[in-house]
């Protein structure tokens, strides 16, 4: 009978709010790393945002650099420590707004790192402002109090489609609102690490993730919103899987 146990790499509690998806994602990262036997040679890269807490929670070496620059910081690390497993755990503000250029150029360079992007549709750490890339039309945030208006703020963008224009190893989107989707997300994340072991190139996994605190919803309602609204705009699934071409 399978025993449900905590990954040994989780050595501390993290500062996430109750019902936040970051903690689930952090766990899926730890599980994937351990299942692939990589936990003795890992360098994690977190942003100065909510993913920052992961560096206190996991028994890996970490770097936390300037907000938004994670993909570039991880590129520098992977280039000088090619044998280490290097991954990014960052928000959608970091990865798609202030750091979009860094993310796209890590994809263009096809750097063999694993990048996990937490799409919670909002700037979590700073209290819930609009995310130009991911806030849904009509959603109210601290900086779009009447709801996102596409006439002045544009539309949310499926960045995985943009990244799919680059020749990357793997791009996929998962969600966390039920066990089936958590399992699927786990497979994507593990695949991202497996690609790195095999030096296949850039892997990016975006995860639709709740921020109950700033959405001002209960954890259960936040999950329902993802299922009923977010996933319609940001469909889950595999966008690129280059496979074993090299």
């Amino acid at each position: 009978m399978p025993v449900f146990r905590k990954p040994e790499s989780i050595i501390n509690t993290a500062g996430y709010c109750g019902g936040c998806g970051h903690g689930v994602i952090q766990r899926l990262i730890a599980e994937s790393i351990e299942e692939l036997g990589l936990q003795d040679h890992v360098i994690g890269c977190v942003d100065i945002a909510c993913s920052f807490w992961s560096q206190d929670a996991l028994n890996f070496e970490f770097i936390a650099g300037p907000h938004g620059r994670c993909a570039a910081v991880a590129t520098g690390i992977k280039k000088v420590r090619p044998d280490a497993t290097v991954y990014v755990h960052a928000g959608d503000g970091c990865s798609y707004v202030i750091g979009l250029s860094e993310t796209i150029y890590a994809a263009i360079r096809d750097v063999p790192i694993t990048m996990v992007v937490v799409n919670n549709g909002i700037f979590g750490m700073t209290g819930g402002q609009l995310n130009l890339a991911t806030t849904l039309i009509g959603d109210k945030t601290l900086s779009s109090k009447a709801g996102r208006d596409p006439k002045t703020m544009g539309h949310p963008v499926d960045m995985l489609k943009t990244i799919a224009n680059c020749d990357v190893a793997f791009a996929a989107r998962g969600a966390l609102y039920d066990v089936k989707h958590i399992d699927e997300t786990k497979r994507y994340i593990k695949k991202g690490f497996q690609n790195q072991v095999e030096n296949r190139g850039f892997s990016i996994i975006e995860v639709l993730s709740p921020c109950p605190t700033n959405w001002k919803l209960s954890p259960v309602d936040a999950m329902a919103k993802i299922k009923n609204e977010t996933e319609k705009v940001f469909p889950v699934g595999v966008y690129v899987d280059r496979g074993g071409k090299d």
Partner: peptide, 10 residues
């Protein structure tokens, strides 16, 4: 510089 930041940390 962000890439350098990562490499320098290593």
């Amino acid at each position: 510089m962000s890439m350098l930041f990562g490499a320098a940390a290593c």
